[in-house]
Design a protein around this nucleic acid. Structure first.
Lengths: 219, 219
DNA sequence: TATGGATCCATA
DNA sequence: TATGGATCCATA
């Protein structure tokens, strides 16, 4: 997978300049670049078919799988907790709960790295509706505002990849008008970045990425 | 329709204390209270049937219609523009475009009041997915941040009304963890409020609010 | 093409 | 019940 652009919205304070963050960022970007289609090819080739119509084009669910599993090596927060493993310092963990919000638990992060000292680096890979990307960004901004995360990274498709995926998926173009708002987030320190992804190649003979409704009786 | 709660997130500067704002707010709340079901009854009676399952419960689209038409008296921005009417000062107008964002036009407001001096009071009635409420809030925060709107009001269902409507509709409970973030919006002046709505009564014999064919609905 | 929305899904 | 999706719709 290509990364045509990285938008750095916030980068402030000692952690943003630390060797640890540089290492984690490099690791994370390498895992994003390792996303592939079809599986096992080492590159991301998309079938150029519009995703807007029912049952056509490419679904989005499998796209992030390899990145998350490369980073976390299969460590999932919930499963580890069942086995009594609750100290994740120094590792990436999938499905890590959010440390913000008291009255309502705000769901899980796609992946998180728990720092040795204190704080969390959070990865959100957006494959939902564009409006869902706003919730992801807000969640990371809230974490930075409250000081409960040290860095937040959102991964979203480029406008070139967007038309081939399920209609109205999160994409960088529609987030741009809001950059100014997120840059102005009231936080003492931290990092907030949006990583843009794009297919390596287009091939009419590439298999479609299945949509979540395949094999299910929707008719 | 009942208004069990109004959450005032921002209220700052001269406009927030002006007689004009007090008048507009009263007008707006009266129009919200005038929402009704079934049409013509003067009260909002909901059929207590879960909206989560396919084809069951109540859709959301018609709920805001009466409020918007009472406020705007049928004035729609697009239609008036066609007839050469572009000065809306001193009136409420439906489907008013957003004055924020240059590279991408960020859609329309449900209703807006154009002030005599400068600035706009914006009403967003959220009947979309909860994630869509985040986009609405971000849009209003961006408008306040840039000074292009004077007030933003979001209308969302209470948690008591929520279960009877289409699954995952915007609701006040899921927005609460983010109040702290929106309160901290960097803006010089303005008003930001969330108006919570709830049915007046429940009746097993009330007609269902019809659902449309969006999303994963069939036919 | 572009944008806000509306509707169900998967899983804990 | 609760939460983050995933998918398709309506309209300009």
């Amino acid at each position: 997978m290509k990364i045509p652009h990285i938008e750095t919205l916030i980068s402030r304070g000692p952690f943003s300049e630390s060797a640890e963050w540089k290492r984690l960022r490099t690791e994370l970007l390498a895992a994003v670049r390792a996303a592939e289609w079809p599986p096992g090819t080492g590159t991301f080739t998309i079938r150029p078919e519009s995703g807007k119509k029912r049952g056509e084009g490419n679904g989005v669910k499998p796209i992030k799988d390899r990145t998350v599993s490369l980073l976390t090596a299969g460590r999932k927060y919930g499963e580890m907790k069942k086995r009594g493993l609750t100290d994740h310092r120094g590792t990436w963990v999938a499905e890590h709960p959010w440390p913000v919000g008291e009255r309502i638990k705000p769901g899980n992060m796609d992946a998180a790295y728990v720092l040795q000292d204190a704080g969390i680096v959070c990865l959100e890979w957006e494959t939902g509706n564009i409006s869902s990307s706003h919730r992801s960004m807000n969640k990371m901004c809230l974490g930075l505002h409250k000081g409960s995360i040290k860095a937040g990274i959102l991964v979203v498709p480029s406008r070139a990849l967007y038309p081939f995926l399920t209609d109205r998926i999160g994409n960088i173009a529609e987030l741009e008008p809001y950059f100014e708002l997120w840059r102005s987030t009231d936080c003492a320190e931290g990092v907030l970045e949006i990583v843009v992804i794009e297919h390596d190649a287009v091939d009419l003979k590439a298999p479609r990425i299945p949509k979540g409704t395949d094999g299910r009786a929707l008719t």
